[in-house]
Write a protein that binds this DNA or RNA. Structure first.
Ligand SMILES: [Mn+2]
Ligand SMILES: [Mn+2]
Ligand SMILES: [Zn+2]
Ligand SMILES: [Zn+2]
Lengths: 124, 124
DNA sequence: TTCTATATGATAATGACTATCATTACTATT
DNA sequence: AATAGTAATGATAGTCATTATCATATAGAA
């Protein structure tokens, strides 16, 4: 059985108390600054365990994985290539069309990943 | 000036003569089998150079980059999680909605990546 | 308290990719 | 054809995110 240990609870709390999309190192650094240092391997394992339990969710952005609250409805991401800001959106038409595309190609769809890249208002 | 050398021409030809989505190691292996071995570093550099020239295009799938012909119209990808088959599709409605989403969020869109995961006909 | 299973953390290993650097291949000019 | 200058090549070392290893710590169950 996988345990929700003290360390994992602290990681979960940090993720739940914001809308941030955390990467592992960033999360470890933040916890260290808040006087709760956790070994980096433990952070990685904790994130994986929490995700396996469905308590947080993740997506792969370039070469790193980002973790966010699982308590949000399905959404996709808009990313500013200048400042790295990540915005969320959901669009039913796109979701519908994805199902249609899968059907047309004889795929039983299990998931998708959509990322829109652009320059945000602040940066343009 | 970047040169289209013999090696790079061979890499380009291999990519152009198929609809495959090549990863660097796979391409190097295939060239070696065809009695045209090219050092792996040269393959990586060649692929980057060819892409910079717009002669091939690429997208990131999980932890590796895939290269394909640039002579195809824009499309996105459907991937079978069982056998790894990659199918292509394009859907104008999705493209339109992406533009709309970007506009609604104040982003000037520069690109996107959409991958649909599922199980293909053969594998289901 | 003792047993047992899992977690932890320091560190090594992995794997895709990039950097280094000595050598080679092209290209343009004598 | 020989020379010089520039870019390419390939063996190999380095990078970086992530995972594996393993000795030790910890938390519940009995
Ligand atoms: Mn979606
Ligand atoms: Mn394609
Ligand atoms: Zn921005
Ligand atoms: Zn399949």
């Amino acid at each position: 059985m996988i345990k929700l240990t003290q360390h994992r609870q602290v990681i979960l709390d940090l993720i739940n108390e914001s809308n941030h999309h955390w990467e592992a190192e960033e999360l470890a650094r933040t916890l260290a600054e808040r006087d709760h240092p956790i070994g980096i391997a433990t952070v990685y394992r904790g994130l994986a365990a929490l995700e396996a339990q469905g308590l947080i969710s993740s997506f792969q952005l370039a070469d790193r994985k980002r973790y966010e609250r699982a308590s949000k409805a399905h959404h996709d991401h808009l990313i500013c290539t200048e400042c790295g800001t990540i915005e969320e959106f959901s669009n039913d038409r796109i979701e519908q069309q994805q199902d249609l595309v899968a059907k047309e190609n004889g795929f039983s769809i299990t998931g998708h990943q959509l990322v829109i890249f652009g320059v945000c208002r602040k940066c343009s």
